[in-house]
């Protein structure tokens, strides 16, 4: 397998004054094209830092991130991020929020009419066309996150980065949105990296689950393959032995590490 996205010996040290703390140590990860990988770990384990490094919003102290064998160290639309708190610009309408990215990425390659059609197409993918002229303050949390996903998808990213995208939503909305993301992944075949702290979410959505050890100096503790066929159905999986086994593995990992932290 030739890796599509690769994290090569990534270290991250935050230095403030003469106090420095090592957040990530020797993180190595390779993703195939079209793969859905979740990163799970307790809070403070540096998983958000890891996502920011992939996104280019933070630079790695050592090591590098390779996308299609090219080093990336600054943010760009090829690694679009869906932020935890949606981060829609409140003074723009839903349509304009998506337009912001589209107009930059396709400034030369698409005509104005094509761009408009493309924006509507992406809003349609997340079923938000009906609210295109509303402002973020006028739509619900789940809808905002849908628009956030549309904004990211509309940039046609090589890798889609999801930073706890469903963390701030209630359980029902979350399940609904997870199904939407699964359907989109099925349809578009994006390469996705998702940060989560929800074990069920990780098992349900991912091809592989990357489990992080606790910080400081967090690193990848274990990588679990989730050999479940797609499309996956939430209800059927609830009693599926493979699903339960995967879930148990992740729980065991987190539980053991968690206990380890408390003892320390």
């Amino acid at each position: 397998m030739k890796p599509y996205l690769k994290l090569d010996h990534v270290d991250k040290v935050f230095t403030r004054g003469n106090v420095s703390s090592e957040v990530l140590k020797d993180v190595n990860l390779a993703l195939a094209k079209g793969e859905y990988v979740s990163i799970i770990g307790h809070s403070g384990c540096g998983k958000s830092t890891m996502l920011n490094i992939i996104a280019g919003l933070t630079t790695a102290t050592m090591g590098c991130v390779l996308l299609e064998d090219r080093e990336v160290n600054s943010p760009g639309p090829d690694r679009a991020v869906v932020f935890q708190n949606h981060s829609l610009l409140p003074w723009l309408t839903v349509y304009q929020n998506v337009q912001l990215g589209v107009d930059k990425v396709f400034a030369k390659s698409k005509s104005k009419a094509e761009r408009a059609a493309w924006i509507l197409h992406n809003l349609n993918l997340v079923q938000m066309t009906h609210a295109k002229d509303k402002r973020p303050s006028e739509i619900s949390g789940g809808m905002k996150q849908r628009v956030g996903i549309a904004r990211a998808l509309a940039m046609e990213p090589k890798v889609l980065l999801l930073d706890e995208p469903f963390g701030a939503l209630d359980a029902l909305t979350r399940a609904h949105l997870q199904d939407s993301v699964m359907a989109l992944h099925q349809k578009l075949g994006n390469t996705i990296v998702m940060i989560t702290h929800d074990v069920d979410e990780a098992v349900l959505l991912s091809d592989r689950i990357v489990m992080m050890t606790n910080g400081p100096s967090a690193t990848i503790g274990e990588v679990l393959d989730v050999p479940l066929a797609r499309p996956r159905k939430r209800l059927e999986l609830a009693t599926d032995p493979t699903y339960l086994k995967c879930r148990k593995r992740v729980l065991e990992f987190l539980y053991e590490r968690h206990r380890f932290v408390e003892a320390a």
């Binding site: 996104a55 280019g56 919003l57 600054s74 943010p75 760009g76 639309p77 690694r79 679009a80 991020v81 932020f83 708190n85 981060s87 610009l89 912001l100 990215g101 930059k104 990425v105 940039m155």
Partner: peptide
Amino acid sequence: IPQDYRNVAAVVQL
């Protein structure tokens, strides 16, 4: 200005 907005601008490469 929230860091989120700056991040959005950075990803979109304004």
